[in-house]
Structure formats: C-alpha cells, structure tokens
C-alpha cells in the first residue's frame, strides 16, 4: 500500500550534495548525448581561439622584435679629430643629458677601423697608421619614436649625425599598423566567438525546451534547471580552451625554433618571445573568453526559456 500524504514535501531551499552531484552528472550526460552539437560548439570555439592565439602570438612577437630593433638601431655622432679628451668627455655628458637617450658609447678611431675592416687584416694594417675614419659616439634611444627629437637636439650641438631615417620611419609605421590591425582582428574574433557560443547554447536549450517545461511542472527550482546547462556549457568551454592551448603550444614551439634560426642568420641577435611568455599571456584570455562566455551564454539562453 502506498501512503499518499504530504509528509514528504520538504521545502529545499538549497541544493543538497547528492543533488549537485546528480546535476553535474546530468550535465556531462547531456553533453555526451548532444555530442554532435557539443562538437560543433567546441569546434567553433577552438577555431576562434586558434586564430586569436595566432594573432596574439604574431602581434606580441612583432612588438617584441620591434623593441629589440629599437635597441639596436643607433645614431652615430662623428667626432672631429681635433677634439681633446676633455672636450670629448664634456660632449658625452651633454649627449647623455638629452631626454630619451638611453645609452652613449664611445668608439675610438681604431675601433671604428676594426669594425670597418672586419676580418680583413690587410685592410686594417694598410690604414692603421693613417686612419681616415673618425671617432664616434653610438647613441641609443629608448624608443624608436623619440629618435627624430634626439637627432634634432644633437644637430643643435653642431654635430655631424648619421642615422637610419628611412628604416626608422618604416619601423614606426609598421609597428603602428600591426598593432592597429591585430587589435581589430582580435576584437572581431571575440565578437564572433561570443555570438557562436551564445547561439549554440541557445540551440541546445531550444532542443531541450520540452524537458525544461516538464521540470518546471514537476517543481524544479531555477538553479536545478540551470546547473546541468551550466555544466554542459562550461565543459564545452573547458574543452574549447584545452585544445587550442595544446595546439598553440606545439605549433609555436616548432615555428619559433625554425624562425629563430632564420632570424639569427639574417639579422643577428633578434629573438622571438619564449613560449612560456606567450602562454602566460594567452591562457588567461582563453579561459576568460571561452568559459566566461559559455557560462554567460547559458544563463542568457536559459533565462528566456525558464518561464513556463
């Protein structure tokens, strides 16, 4: 005999432990049941994050490389042979006091010839005693954009200045263009992935509208209904983070190793960002984007369908 009394109706204000584990399992089960849709969501997230990751790695490295080039491109200030040691020292002080000058190094006439001759000892020997090259200061500027101002100050001191005007200009505009372009690409991709994730979860919710309706009639609380969808959404987000993280890690490692060799051969001493730096910057962005958006998407998508 069944006793049909009201004694069993307990008001449960909070979800119990066994209910939470049940809901968690339900979320994973439904993820597996809807695996085709889940796969599509994961695929779109992975794709978006991969493009984002690549843009990020490229932009980040360009910035890094330009920074290195900024350090390398210097201004040469040629010195008159008639200058005394004291005058030279005074001039060095003056140059160092110019704003944005990061480093000033003195190159003697002899060092200039050594650099010019390189390994050609015969050439060096030939001019050693009658060195036509002047002594110079190598002036480094903290940032490439400040180079023009430093050059003007040096010219005001009446010095003969040699610098890479054209190259500097190219780097300045290239840097700006890359940063501008990659920001736009990344913003567009963020919007696209946001729309895709929200839409996919809306679709999942729509497919299970009937189920939600039944749950509401049985007396399921909003949180009871939300949790499995959240688990499903966040699981999609987590998988969507893991895959591109591994892919970027692997691909970057291989590409960076290959590129570094080329860079060292072509422009000595230019390095790429280490993989750790890229991942440290990228993974939090991935987590915030994928998991945050999938969670938010689930909540937004569910709110519309919770009213039975």
């Amino acid at each position: 005999m069944v006793e049909l009394s009201r004694t069993n109706i307990v008001e449960v204000t909070a979800l119990k432990g066994h209910t939470i584990s049940y809901l968690f399992l339900e979320g994973l089960k439904s993820l597996w049941k809807n695996r085709l849709m889940a796969f599509a969501s994961v695929a779109t997230i992975v794709l978006s994050l991969l493009v984002l990751g690549m843009s990020y790695a490229i932009a980040n490295n360009f910035e890094y490389i330009i920074g290195q080039i900024e350090q390398k491109i210097g201004i040469s200030v040629y010195l008159n042979d008639t200058l005394s040691d004291i005058q030279t020292a005074e001039l060095e002080k003056k140059i160092k006091s110019i704003p944005n000058v990061s480093q000033v190094s003195y190159i003697t006439k002899d060092e200039a010839l050594q650099i010019f001759a390189g390994e050609d000892i015969v050439l060096y020997d030939e001019f050693k005693d009658d060195n036509p090259l002047p002594a110079s200061f190598e002036v480094r500027v903290n940032q490439i954009v400040n180079q023009q101002a430093v050059v003007e100050q040096l010219m005001q001191l009446g010095l003969e200045v040699n610098f890479f005007q054209a190259e500097t200009d190219i780097f300045i505009s290239l840097n700006a263009a890359i940063q501008f372009f990659s920001s736009i690409v990344i913003i567009i991709l963020i919007i696209i992935s946001l729309l895709l994730i929200t839409n996919t979860i809306k679709l999942t919710v729509f497919v299970r509208k009937k189920e939600i309706e039944i749950m509401k009639y049985i007396g399921a609380t909003d949180s009871f209904i939300r949790v499995p969808f959240l688990v499903e959404g966040i699981s999609i987000g987590i998988i969507g983070v893991i895959i591109p993280t591994i892919v970027i890690f692997r691909v970057y490692d291989v590409v960076a190793r290959g590129l570094s060799k080329v860079l060292i051969d072509v422009v000595g001493g230019i390095y790429l960002r280490p993989i750790e730096t890229i991942m440290v910057g990228l993974v939090p962005i991935y987590i915030v984007l994928a998991i945050g958006i999938s969670m938010l998407g689930s909540i937004i998508a569910l709110r519309r369908h919770l009213k039975v």
């Binding site: 039944i214 009639y217 007396g219």
Partner: peptide, 18 residues
C-alpha cells in the same frame, strides 16, 4: 513557485515524458 508546484501533481493529454 517550484515549491508550490510540488504540492500539485499534473498530468497532460500528451503525457510529456522525457
């Protein structure tokens, strides 16, 4: 409302089973 609904069992024409 969910707690109230637990006091009222409901059956539909189209069964509405999962």
């Amino acid at each position: 409302i969910p707690y109230y609904r637990r006091e009222v069992g409901v059956v539909f024409q189209d069964f509405r089973l999962l």
